[in-house]
Amino acid sequence: MNKALTRAQLTTEVVVRALTVPLLGLFVAMSIHQYVRDPSRVTLLVFAFAEVLTVVLAVLARVPRERDWNPLSLVVTVCATFYFLAFQITPGIKLVPEGLAAVIQVAGVSVQIYAKWSLGRSFGLLPANRGVIVAGPYRVVRHPLYLGYLVTDIGFLVANFGVRNVVVLVVQWTLQIVRIVREEQLLSNDATYREYMSRVRYRLVHGVF
């Protein structure tokens, strides 16, 4: 049975979810504005769609039975979730053709959708125990959702390359790794998850991490 949230936790829950709407709306509006100025930049639309998918599902997620309310986890989660606001979305250097970059992004979004479909409503922002999922892409790596995010980010970067965007992604993925580690610290309290970790060795990229 879920424990009742304290007043501070409930306030945090409401604030984090409420913030998603205006912040996401701002990013989508800026992306559409840039796309209207240059309709060839389809990577902007794919990236905006991916962020809408992530945030909307997080807002609709069920309240978990156990969640990490540590201030570090909260700060890391908020920064890693809304990192897209720091991106430079004006035209950058194209390391690969826009179409190829969009294909990479779509591959990343497809992984995200498959992972989120496997999770159902067991998806959210803060590290939490929403039930252990071991099916679908979770048979390959322990965090396929983050793998999808990584591929999508790479697709965006190679068509919108610049120093600022590289810095944003380095910071973003440093935070995401912290997020993964803290999430696993929480989930490791569950014997089912410990057994799952013994079967699926890698967290994010098979053979690497």
Rank of each mutant, 00 (worst) to 15 (best):
Y149C: 00
Y196D: 02
I104R: 07
Y149H: 03
T174R: 02
L72A: 10
L95D: 11
I133F: 10
L72Q: 05
P64V: 06
L53I: 09
R142S: 11
A50N: 01
V103L: 15
F82K: 05
E184F: 00
Y114A: 11
L45W: 07
T12E: 14
L24W: 01
L147N: 05
V163M: 15
L60T: 05
V168E: 03
V163P: 14
P144Q: 10
R139D: 11
V28R: 01
S188F: 08
A8F: 15
A86P: 02
P71N: 08
Y114L: 13
W173V: 02
V21D: 01
L187R: 09
V56A: 06
S110Y: 08
S198R: 15
G162D: 15
G92V: 12
G120D: 08
N129K: 04
A80N: 02
L10W: 11
Q88Y: 07
F47L: 12
P91N: 03
R67T: 13
A61R: 09
G207Q: 11
V21T: 02
Q105L: 12
V166D: 13
G207D: 04
Q9P: 01
S198H: 15
R142V: 10
F49R: 05
E51W: 14
V103M: 08
A159K: 03
T152Q: 09
M197C: 14
E195S: 13
A191L: 14
A58N: 06
T12G: 12
Y83R: 09
S122N: 13
